[in-house]
């Protein structure tokens, strides 16, 4: 049994941490698309930026450590779109399966 002070993992201000890693990367096309989907869907009122953040926070610390920024973003965008009823989990599952069957790289599974 462990108690908690209620502080959530994402609330990082003042915590002990190491040197700031200064390496940077260019955004891949799929990451730019995730960003665009978030902006467009929130702009159309399907969810809010706070809804996106809520889903990111609820994914937990393990997701923060294991997955990249836009990996977490597409998961959070999807969570909000499912909650908004834009598509069903069955539709998503079937489409992801179909996408996987198209090829082995991101370039291969996209049209054009």
């Amino acid at each position: 049994m462990t108690d908690t002070d209620g502080r959530r993992w994402h609330d990082m201000g003042g915590q002990t941490a190491g040197p700031v890693p200064l390496d940077e990367h260019d955004h891949a096309l799929w990451e730019k698309r995730v960003d665009a989907l978030m902006v467009l869907c929130s702009g159309k009122g399907l969810f809010t930026v706070d809804g996106l953040r809520r889903a990111l926070e609820d994914m937990g610390e393990d997701a923060f450590e294991r997955h990249s920024y836009y990996e977490r973003w597409i998961a959070a965008v999807n969570q909000n779109l499912v909650e908004a009823g834009v598509y069903t989990l069955a539709e998503l599952g079937a489409r992801m399966h179909e996408v996987a069957a198209r090829g082995e790289t991101y370039a291969q599974v996209n049209d054009g």
Binding site: D5, G6, R7, R8, D11, G13, R53, R54
Partner: peptide, 13 residues
């Protein structure tokens, strides 16, 4: 206060 959920008042303040 320390409710769970989406709150924008940082804990350190």
């Amino acid at each position: 206060w320390m409710p769970p959920g989406h709150v924008r008042a940082p804990a350190y303040l």
